[in-house]
Each structure stands twice: as structure tokens, then as C-alpha cells.
Amino acid sequence: MYGAEIWGWREYEEIERVQEKYLKWTLGLEKYTPGYIVREETKREKMRVEAGKRAVGFEQKFSERGDCKILQECWKEIRKEGGKHVWNERDKYYEGKGYACEEIERMREMGRSMKEELSVRDKDIDKQERRSRISESRYNADYRKIVKDEVPKYTQRESIKEKRMMARFRCGNEEKENNFWMDETDRRCRICWREGETIEHMLEGCEGLRESEESREEVLNEDGRGLDWMKEVWKIRELWQGVGKQKE
């Protein structure tokens, strides 16, 4: 976030990828897990939200400290031709939040602080973008059924292994059928190798697992009620993989 007061008007994909990569690493998720699912699971906004808030707050200082010559000189430099691209990004930022730049400046002159209001609006926009992509996603299409507005309770567990296990099941890493870019044979269940690997198949039709009356929503519930079932799936997979290696 260094220098975000200057560059924070614009969203940078490179910076967003760094955050998403970090979140995937902490949750033990595969690198191909969509970033919008990971950010929804952790309830983390894009970095642009915090960067934009800092940029707005920095600009607001100029209006509140008009007697500071150093700040005023900096402001003049930004508005020169050399900083025109920054100024254009600033205009686009405000317009993207539904405000004309002239309107922002007029409200500031009236003593109205826009920092928090714009930040809240940016968070709402970010949330709408995530939810929209989730509803249209081919990967883990059923994830939308377990989405809540609060951070999932399982993230507060002490066991890192349990947190990562639940994150992998909830975010779609434990269902090969989500990997739509693979061949059909590569998407088969890793236990019975007969059907596509989905939560429903493992609950109802996989010959290597006990049949369960629980639904997808129940075993993937944020409170961890499906953890024993998840552990059983991992254990049976390890056993079957061991059998396969012995045969080889």
C-alpha cells in the first residue's frame, strides 16, 4: 500500500493477484481456484478499496489544510501535465462511485467528508461484483448456495489442517468435476473411478464411502458439522491410492 495516496485511484491487477495468491496459500487452496470465490470465502475486498480510501483521505487533507503551502504545492504538481493521467484516474474513480468530480468538490466546500461514504460504496460495488461472478461461474457452480454475509465460523478454528480441509471442500478443490477444462476421465471420482467426482456422488453413490442422508449444504456448513465426513473422504482416498500403488 506504499504510496497508495497517489496511485490508489486505479485498480491494478498485479496487486490484486498478490493478495489472492496469499489468501489461497493460507487456506491451502489450489492456484486455479477463482479469486472471486476466495475473496468471498474470506470476506476480503479487493486492495483497490483500501487504496481508494487512502487516496480520497489524502485529497481531503488539502481541503482541510488550505494554509499548508507544502501540500498545496504538491497538489499543483499532481494537476500539471506530467500528472494528468493521475488526475484522469481520479475522475474515473469518482464517476465509478456515481459522483461527478465537481459534485465531490462542492460537497467538500460545504464541509461534508466523503472518505467513509465513498469507501462504503466501493465495498458494496466490490461485493456485487463478487456475487455476480459467483452466480455465473462454471467452476464450483453450487458455491452460491453456501454463501453468507459473515466470515465463515470455521476460519476461527485452531487447527490449521481442519481450516484448510473445510476451505478446500467449500471452495471446490475436492470435486474433480469442477475442473471443466479436464478430460472426462480425469474428472472421475478418486475412490470408485466410475462417475464424476462431486459432493452429491460421494454422499449418495460412491461405493467406497458410506451412504449419507446429509445434503451438500449440510456437510459444507460453516460450523464444521461435516468435518468428520470430510476426514473420512480423505482417509478412504489415501487407502485406495495405496492399493493402486501396490497393484502397480
Rank of each mutant, 00 (worst) to 15 (best):
I104A: 11
Y154K: 06
R194A: 14
I146N: 03
C171G: 04
E218T: 02
R108I: 03
K176F: 06
E103W: 14
C206G: 06
I104F: 01
M230G: 02
N178S: 10
K163M: 10
D183I: 00
R216Q: 09
G224N: 06
D122T: 12
S215I: 08
K92T: 07
E213D: 07
E211G: 05
R164A: 05
K231E: 12
N173P: 00
L227F: 02
D122I: 12
V151M: 01
G226C: 00
A141G: 06
F180M: 02
Y143G: 03
R170V: 13
R144A: 01
Y94K: 10
I191L: 15
R131K: 03
D228W: 00
E102Q: 14
Q128I: 03
T155H: 15
K97T: 13
L220R: 02
Y139P: 10
Y139A: 01
I146Y: 00
V219W: 01
T185G: 04
E89V: 01
R164V: 06
R106E: 15
S137H: 11
R168F: 00
E200W: 12
N173L: 02
C192E: 08
D142H: 09
R190S: 13
A100Y: 10
R133L: 12
R90G: 03
M202K: 14
N178R: 07
I104W: 11
E222L: 02
M114F: 04
G208N: 09
R168P: 06
E204R: 13
A100S: 11
I134G: 10
D149C: 07
P152E: 07
E217Q: 06
W193I: 03
K115N: 00
T198E: 08
G172W: 00
I104T: 04
R225C: 09
G224H: 07
E177K: 06
K145Q: 12
D223M: 09
R144W: 07
G172L: 09
K161R: 11
R138G: 11
A167C: 08
I125G: 02
L220M: 14
R144G: 00
V147E: 03
C192K: 10
L209W: 08
R131F: 09
S132V: 01
E103S: 05
E95M: 15
K97Q: 15
E89W: 15
K97I: 15
M114C: 14
N221E: 11
D186Q: 11
D124N: 07
D223G: 04
G96T: 10
E175Q: 12
R138E: 13
E105C: 03
E89S: 10
I146E: 00
E195S: 14
D183R: 07
K115S: 01
E195D: 13
E197H: 09
R144F: 12
R170S: 15
E129A: 13
E103R: 10
S113G: 01
R133C: 10
